[in-house]
Design a protein around this nucleic acid. Sequence first.
DNA 1: ACATTACATTCCCATATAGGAATATGTCAA
DNA 2: TTGACATATTCCTATATGGGAATGTAATGT
Lengths: 126, 126
Amino acid sequence: MARASTTSDAFNAVAEPRRREILIYLAGAERPVGAIVAALGLEQPSVSKHLRVLRDVGLVRMRCQGRQKLYRTNSEAIRPLHEWAGMFERYWLHQLNRVKELAEATVRQGPADLNFPNQNLKEKNT
Amino acid sequence: MARASTTSDAFNAVAEPRRREILIYLAGAERPVGAIVAALGLEQPSVSKHLRVLRDVGLVRMRCQGRQKLYRTNSEAIRPLHEWAGMFERYWLHQLNRVKELAEATVRQGPADLNFPNQNLKEKNT
DNA sequence: ACATTACATTCCCATATAGGAATATGTCAA
DNA sequence: TTGACATATTCCTATATGGGAATGTAATGT
């Protein structure tokens, strides 16, 4: 099997850096395609294709106004990403505490020998 | 050009659903590969390959213990995702307020005609 | 030394891009 | 109608998968 489609979910859609830029650009206000092209310096067909992906997963909304189409970010669709990543918050807070405690312990004991920095470890880390 | 490599950054790495599952499973404690295989019901080579991707972008750490290799999630590496998605928080809060205000206004006015739900809109939405 | 356990890597392949170029579609203006 | 403007879509192609199967490799037990 190949990689999942970019339109399969928000995670796949935002994997592309340009699509993330577009989402940020369209977060505050709706803009016509031409404005995105000008602001991000991309080719117009490229922007249209990215917008198509973003629409398919609900990350942007579109409205027609005369001959232009106004896009804006649907921030609600980004919440699942935020919440998924947020599940790990308690763990990175723990890691920060451990680093802090280690630093304080090191100050009390004096610095470790930098030539053998792993002398106190039983297993090698990666 | 093709899609960016899954190892190009954390965004691309977590686009794969199985890799997200692995990260959650390895968030609380380090586990040998066999435990992941058993817990998630994937083929062992598949798990090894996913772990390789996750390691390349720093989303997991590995430690050798005898013949097994213990992996754990490096939650710190998920923070950038959380923070990127967090940039949109103020916008989805605004959207929620607008929906709430609209609902309250609707209650005051009575419900709109469901057969012509767009009768008050000048442009068509998508 | 040999078999076993625990992982990692390689090979093969169907599939899905993302970008560039060219073209199609839809809207407004004269 | 004709032309200009704003977007969208199609075609083409190099590239990167992810899964399955098979194989490689390192560590341990006997």
